[in-house]
Design a protein around this nucleic acid. Structure first.
Lengths: 178, 178
DNA sequence: TATCCCATGTAACTAGTTACATGATTCG
DNA sequence: CGAATCATGTAACTAGTTACATGGGATA
């Protein structure tokens, strides 16, 4: 995230815009982590006067930090560690003992994913409109981030379809039970 | 997870079989957590002699624990907290500066998801063969877990499609660059 | 004058991982 | 006889969250 030297505050903005679909972090985690990485020599800092507000602490990548990154990337994909809260809830939903509440749960889920999907598609449309090379001729440092957007769209569309299918099934069960 | 009174060891097995697609936990987290929940009155324990190995500590749900569960389920879906390691890597993959390594990364990813998809489909086939009511007439306490399996299949199929699409795009870029 | 954005952090806590430690029974 | 399974846990550590604390400048 330090291809351009950045402060903790900048890093937070990058999390909130570009990485929000697959990773989040709070400032209270970011600041100590940057300090720790600096003591480990993985990045370096410099103080810079800000145009408004207090002095900025700007961090840059070091050789050793770059090597660590390449090691992580070269070590193969990180998979199988995901924790999906709404599926954990789904698993136990029978214990509500209330078909209507289960349906409400899925309606809320559905509307969340519908909104996310629209947001991602809007983002894609913006990129596409702003850049005639979108998406396949983008330079690498834009192309790979674009892949994460594309993955988000695929996965959220699939999850939305599952919500719809589930709602149909739940309503059918309710009719059968009546 | 304590609809049937269970030991920490049993709970671990439930994580490894039924919940593995959306949540994992180690014994070293499970044992202390069960102890903590007991001190909070959310569950109760009893010692039972085992057929083999040491005495089992078997936990059961309490009224107060059940109430807590219902509260969590009634509070709406937990969303937007997922951390997806392979997308974090994808985002930074340009920094490898090596198109072949990026392709290898996605080939590894693809084969992982292909395998997972087969495993989930096999699981579904088993269930289906073993139970003539599968899936829509299952009783609630089997139906809702089945939904998590179905969601896994939808999402992994979508992710696999994205891997294939990405590989095609990466190979095309390589040709264009040549 | 109130709220938002800039910009930094610490403290207390909760969650989760990896490694260590023990010991019986069963199966190949 | 060795490995796997049953069964319990602790210790040390890393990761992450929530709440607290400060204060200037810009915008409505």
């Amino acid at each position: 995230m330090l291809r351009q030297p950045s402060s903790g505050y900048d890093v937070k903005k990058q999390f909130d815009t570009s990485l929000r679909n697959f990773w989040k972090a709070e400032l209270s985690q970011i600041y100590p982590t940057l300090q720790k990485l600096e003591t480990e020599g993985l990045l370096s800092s410099a103080k810079v006067d800000s145009e408004q507000g207090p002095q900025r602490v700007v961090y840059s990548q070091t050789e050793s930090g770059k090597a660590e990154l390449l090691h992580w990337l070269g070590d193969g994909p990180t998979v199988g560690t995901e924790r999906i809260g709404f599926l954990a809830q789904t698993y136990f939903l029978a214990q509500l003992g209330d078909a209507n509440k289960a349906i409400e749960f899925f309606e809320e889920l559905r509307s969340y994913f519908a909104e996310r999907l629209e947001a991602l598609q809007a983002r894609e449309a913006e990129w596409s409109a702003a850049n005639p090379l979108y998406p396949d001729e983008l330079p690498d440092h834009d192309f790979f981030p674009q892949l994460t957007l594309d993955c988000g769209i695929h996965r959220i569309a699939a999850t939305l379809a599952w919500c719809d299918k589930t709602l149909t099934r739940l309503k059918q069960r309710q009719r059968s039970a009546a």
